[in-house]
Design a protein around this nucleic acid. Structure first.
Length: 305
DNA sequence: TGCATTTGACCATT
DNA sequence: AATGGTCAAATGCA
């Protein structure tokens, strides 16, 4: 694995058709949503009438779009991509629970580290890349030796977890193939934080758009506004944004890391994107074009994402 | 001194 | 019971 051409070859014709169908449905729903939003902005009084003509309401359309993307990505990445519409409470529980566990260790009869509620299935997707940088600020909170894996898995949470209630986490593990120096990054949950302090080149701008596409759009702002006031502000963790601390991957070769950071900071965004995506990263616009052209990826496609 | 990382312990899931 | 995910004290660094 590792190239889109190989990835495409591995897709059966049946799967390709299924994927195309799902994307077309998603596109159709997006178009309907666009019409709705457009009419709503220009003439709110016509909105209901328009909705009547269209087959779905906005919320239904959003669900359709998300479902389309989720299913397609699940098909393409072989990653279990599930809707998280009903999972939004888990992290809140966790935050509350964390508070309960914040008492001094001395006061507890027994160490209660690890008292948390494990997240269930969230939106998840995997990116195989030579770098783990994605423009977001991450704080490492754990590392684990994984059974039958040469390299440990590192766990990261968004640095905005506490000040903005962002639920995004990622897991980074170096691939077994030592020579490739590649890393598999699994992103779990979508960013709900606003990342305004960083104005430099965003290496994963497309990635972020992808994450946004997969996120439950209707929840995005609500969650921000709902969580922010109630979430205890413990501390701000914004310093590391794009600072590219080697902590992103503990066993990452430091020299390589330095090279990567220099590359990412000074390269053109398009070039950087090509560095980020490997087999599962997909830029939707080009993706659509590839589908139009018969879903054929050649070697050039791999780097033109 | 403050902040980020490390690491062992704990808990949830399978 | 095994494994993986998370917590938080200890540690290191700027």
């Amino acid at each position: 694995m590792g190239t889109l051409s190989a990835w495409s070859e591995n897709l059966s014709t049946k799967k390709k058709k299924k994927v195309i169908k799902q994307l077309v449905e998603g596109q159709d729903s997006a178009n309907q949503l666009q019409i709705l939003l457009h009419n709503n902005n220009n003439n709110p009084s016509q909105q209901q009438q328009t909705e009547h003509h269209l087959s779905s309401t906005k919320a239904q359309l959003v669900d359709k779009i998300l479902s389309s993307f989720n299913q397609t990505l699940a098909e393409l990445t072989s990653v279990n991509v599930s809707s998280s519409h009903n999972q939004t409470g888990s992290n809140d529980d966790q935050l509350v629970k964390s508070e309960d566990c914040s008492e001094s260790r001395r006061l507890r009869p027994k160490d209660k580290r690890g008292c948390y509620k494990r997240k269930r299935a969230e939106e998840a997707w995997t990116v195989v890349s030579a770098t783990t940088q994605d423009g977001h600020g991450w704080r490492k909170y754990g590392q684990k030796e994984i059974l039958n894996s040469k390299h440990p898995r590192s766990y990261f949470r968004c640095t905005r977890k506490y000040d903005q209630g962002c639920r995004a986490t990622k897991q980074v593990q170096r691939l077994e193939d030592d020579g490739s120096q590649m890393y598999r990054t699994t992103y779990i949950g979508t960013h709900t934080c606003t990342n305004r302090s960083f104005n430099g080149p965003r290496i994963i701008s497309n990635f972020e758009s992808r994450g946004t596409c997969m996120a439950p759009i209707k929840q995005h702002d609500d969650r921000l506004s709902n969580l922010a006031p109630t979430t205890p502000v413990i501390k701000r963790e914004t310093k590391e944004e794009m600072s590219g601390t080697p902590s992103d991957v503990t066993d990452l070769d430091s020299a390589m890391w330095k090279d990567l950071m220099e590359f990412e900071c000074y390269s053109e965004p398009d070039v950087m994107i090509s560095n980020v995506y490997s087999c599962t990263g997909i830029k939707f616009r080009n993706f659509e074009m590839d589908f139009v052209n018969g879903f054929e990826f050649d070697g050039s496609d791999e780097c033109v994402l």
